[in-house]
Each structure stands twice: as C-alpha cells, then as structure tokens.
Design a protein around this nucleic acid. Sequence first.
DNA 1: GGGGTGACCCAGT
DNA 2: TACTGGGCCACCC
Length: 104
Amino acid sequence: MTPDEYVEAVLTLVERIPPGRVMSYGAVADALAERSGRASARLVGSIMARHGGGVPWHRVVNAAGRLPPGHERQARARLRAEGCPLRGERVDLARAAWTPDEGM
DNA sequence: GGGGTGACCCAGT
DNA sequence: TACTGGGCCACCC
C-alpha cells in the first residue's frame, strides 16, 4: 500500500464516522493497521492536518477527547450541532467513541 | 544521510 | 487533573 493510498484509506474511514460519534487518531490508525500494515497515531494526525479538508475532521480527536489545536471553536460547534456528548472543551469518549464494525 | 518537528499515545509521578 | 519521558513514523530542511 503506497503512502498515497494510505491517505485515501484514512480519509475514507473518517467519512464513515456517523454524526455525533468520534474516533481518536490512535483508533483510526489501529483500525487501518490490519489492512495497511502500518499504524501510527502521529501519522494519522499529520494526515488530517495536511489532507483533512473535505472530510468531517472534527469527528477525529485525540485519545483524551481534546479537539485539534487551532480549530477547537469550530470543532466544538459542529460536534454540539450533531448531538455529540461534550464535557466542557473535550469529547466524552466513553459515550461518543465509534468503531468501524459498529457500522457494518 | 542526519536531525528537528508534529491536529499522537501510554505509563509514571 | 497536569506534566514528563520514551516511542512512534512521515515530512522538511
């Protein structure tokens, strides 16, 4: 799998996250690990930073439920509009976490 | 090729 | 809860 295809795989998976649900960067990396061979939360983070436009990037947060630096306001507004459980400035991962197998 | 950086993660303190 | 140290992997000098 080429790096370019890996980017596509990440974006495709992010698009499948249902409204009001979220995945952590690590969860995305882990979910793709089986199919791509490589998994790295940092890698997913950099991919979202560089190619995240065009997908619901606000549904991807870090493992602590904190929103992406520089976009907290935007992300929080969109998540709240989707009914995503928020605890202050972070997502309640216990209730909002989503995994690919839930949607299939 | 070598070294710094980042929308990360986990375990310890 | 917050901070630290180590590991991680692609990107950019």
